[in-house]
Design a protein around this nucleic acid. Structure first.
Lengths: 205, 205
DNA sequence: GTCTATATCTTGATAGAC
DNA sequence: GTCTATCAAGATATAGAC
């Protein structure tokens, strides 16, 4: 840990600033998509200048790739945390493990930016760089669930399918229709085991 | 039906031309997303001029909304066709109905543009006009499956989840990784009951 | 109905000061 | 490390001819 007591408030260690920009970028890319998000909006959200954002990451595409990679790493880390949680005595109970992993995913539902940046990446598979990164990450998740969590292939598929539906409902802002539409209400209550109240508490817009 | 035998080849009835542009737009929006797609690319794909595309639909947003609406209507019509297929004697067999609907969805998998335009719409829920249209359409599908196909809420949820996974795999171009990645191969073979060969035959790029 | 020309705005990226 | 100024490219939308 380098001493840095005299650094002005506008200066941070580059790693910290980078993390800050990456988090802001995740929110902006999630909301407007890869092309729709502007480096200016990211800069504003991070409280820095637009050219500085570009400087830090090279190009807008590089920035999005970094956002994607970070989101995937966070997702993988979350699942690994759930696998490790409870200690060795729980490892043998497969139903319990499955439940822990599912709950750990539900915890991520509050991070719109993370989930939707991933989704935007997933459906841009035709872009050479983005597609390669997205496919890779998706397969890493698949292998993690199969090999480290011990899921059967069909179990992984069902789990991923659930995740994609949840992500879609988040993207749709389906909670905004909860009050006005009985169908929305029923769908949300069927699809979200327990996290509905939490999601609604995040509020509209 | 107005007689129009003397019309030059470059002129069509507006309804036909509109349908042509809409189909081209579906492909372009699906590939690059709402913001990433340009009216110029749509025009080129449809073989007309860029200003004409704008003229026909008002704005790019109006065009995307028309694409979304058309995709949703096609999806709903496909499901209704599956529900009606086989005549009244099959209506009582729920498992058979479920299977017919699932297969009818698999038939849509060949239309990347359709599926991915929908997905792009679904994850842009924060946009006022697009979000409203997307939520609405998604709920129409939900109600169709529940009320017209007689699915239980959990059954609808599982069906929608499967659909979102399939759409995501299409968006990811996961078939491109089939040969190089055993995990991709296993995932695709687990997630796609029978349409894998067909999807692969569509080829890369 | 359809095109050409073009105005206008946005935006990613670069140059260079501090 | 970070900002200001600015350029060059691209994209939507309009005007107006045919």
């Amino acid at each position: 840990m380098t001493a840095r007591t005299t650094a002005p408030a506008t200066r941070m260690r580059s790693a910290d600033r980078r993390a800050l920009v990456l988090e802001a970028a995740t929110a902006v890319f999630g909301e407007r998509g890869y092309v729709g998000a502007t480096t200016e909006a990211v800069a504003k959200a991070a409280g820095v200048s637009q050219p500085y954002v570009v400087r830090m990451f090279g190009t807008k595409e590089d920035l999005f790739l970094a956002v994607l990679r970070r989101a995937l790493d966070l997702l993988l880390a979350t699942f690994r945390g759930a696998i490790d949680a409870g200690g060795p005595e729980h490892r043998a109970d497969h139903a319990d493990l499955h439940s822990r992993i599912a709950h750990s995913y539900a915890d991520l539902l509050g991070d719109r930016g993370l989930l939707l940046s991933l989704m935007h990446g997933f459906i841009l598979g035709s872009d050479p760089a983005i597609g390669a990164c997205a496919r890779d990450g998706f397969l890493e998740v698949y292998r993690l669930l199969r090999d480290e969590a011990g899921f059967a292939p069909e179990e992984v598929r069902d789990f991923l399918a659930d995740g994609m539906l949840l992500n879609t409902l988040v993207g749709l802002r389906m909670v905004d229709a909860y009050d006005a539409s009985p169908a929305a209400r029923e769908l949300l209550e069927t699809a979200l085991p327990s996290k509905l109240e939490f999601l609604r508490s995040l509020g509209p817009a």
